[in-house]
């Protein structure tokens, strides 16, 4: 009897529960999702502190009065919508972002095709050279462009007048100033599209083109019915990313025109800087910078939903 009665000492019970806990931990660590989460944790913490917190704080800030002493709800947004200059900024930002992204996508697509059709030996050189604009810090390259467009001593105008034409008011006339800032943005952003599209082109199975060639498809038909459908997801994602980044652009406009002449090149970020930092109305500046947030968020949801749907179809 005696050997059938077992009395557990507290020490033994502790050991048993300890080993059970260790077992659970081992089980948890064996799960791939747990490991993935733990490995992502530092990044999640960085994003939470440097992106999520400032974003939430700026939303909070945009709902305060100028002195940041009173909550005014959507008062800042209502005020902005009643100002002519702000409505002009909305229009300009849309023109700036949409036209720049359109040209970047178009140039990226064309150059990606050209490079893809080059012999493999020469491709690397071209890829490297065409990536240069994207690698140079934007503030530095914008300054370089500003020198080329300099209102008084423009290098471009030196060539233009040398050829016998009149000087072009690159930065002093509203139309030309808008053109100039869009041009620089396209110059800077097109390599991003190029590299993404080139990667997408490389992933299209060669057999599809061979089958199409046997069926007698010409180059346009191959592009229209094979390349484009296979690239749809990457096009959607690059356009979305670029649209978000271009809408938030600051450096190019601030360095080249400062929003002038007559406020005609201001975009959300530069206008927010003028209101928030230069004029000292941080809540109004925050409201300006957040203005596009809901529109871009909705666009992102739709685009990413489309990407997921197509991904499932392919899968």
């Amino acid at each position: 009897m005696a050997d059938t009665v077992q009395t557990w000492s507290p020490g033994l019970a502790g050991t048993r529960s300890g080993s059970r806990a260790r077992g659970r931990l081992r089980l948890l660590l064996r799960r791939r999702s747990s490991i993935a989460f733990l490995m992502c944790l530092p990044l999640i913490l960085i994003i939470a502190s440097l992106v999520v917190y400032p974003a939430l704080y700026s939303i909070y800030l945009s709902m305060l009065n100028r002195a940041q002493t009173r909550f005014i709800g959507l008062g800042n947004f209502r005020f902005l919508l009643s100002r002519d200059v702000f409505l002009m900024v909305v229009e300009q930002s849309a023109i700036f972002a949409i036209s720049a992204v359109l040209f970047k996508a178009l140039i990226g697509l064309i150059t990606a095709h050209l490079i893809n059709n080059l012999p493999a030996k020469g491709q690397r050189k071209w890829r490297g050279m065409l990536l240069v604009p994207w690698v140079i810090p934007l503030a530095l390259s914008s300054l370089g462009w500003w020198w080329l467009f300099d209102p008084t001593h423009s290098a471009f105008n030196w060539i233009v007048t040398g050829l016998g034409f009149n000087e072009v008011p690159w930065l002093s006339a509203p139309g030309w100033a808008r053109f100039s800032v869009i041009l620089v943005n396209v110059w800077f952003g097109a390599p991003f599209f190029l590299i993404m599209y080139l990667a997408a082109l490389k992933s299209v199975p060669e057999q599809l083109y061979e089958a199409a060639a046997i069926d007698g498809a010409n180059a346009w038909q191959k592009f229209r019915h094979i390349t484009l459908p296979m690239m749809r997801n990457i096009i959607a994602i690059t356009v979305l990313f670029s649209l978000i980044v271009t809408f938030a652009n600051f450096d190019i406009v601030q360095i080249m025109t400062g929003g002038g002449p007559r406020n005609t090149t201001h975009v959300f970020a530069t206008y927010a800087f003028m209101l928030g930092i230069r004029s000292g109305d941080l809540p109004l500046g925050a409201a300006t910078s957040l203005f596009m947030f809901p529109i871009l968020a909705v666009a992102a949801v739709f685009i990413l939903r489309g990407v997921r749907k197509r991904g499932r179809e392919i899968g």
Binding site: P151, T152, H153, P169, S172, T257, G258, G260, P261
Partner: peptide, 21 residues
């Protein structure tokens, strides 16, 4: 005035004078 004054920043007028123009 020169046409480009509408695009000048705070250094524009300085450069104008220094250039001798």
């Amino acid at each position: 005035n020169p046409k480009e004054v509408y695009a000048w920043d705070d250094a524009g007028n300085n450069r104008w004078l220094i250039s001798g123009k």
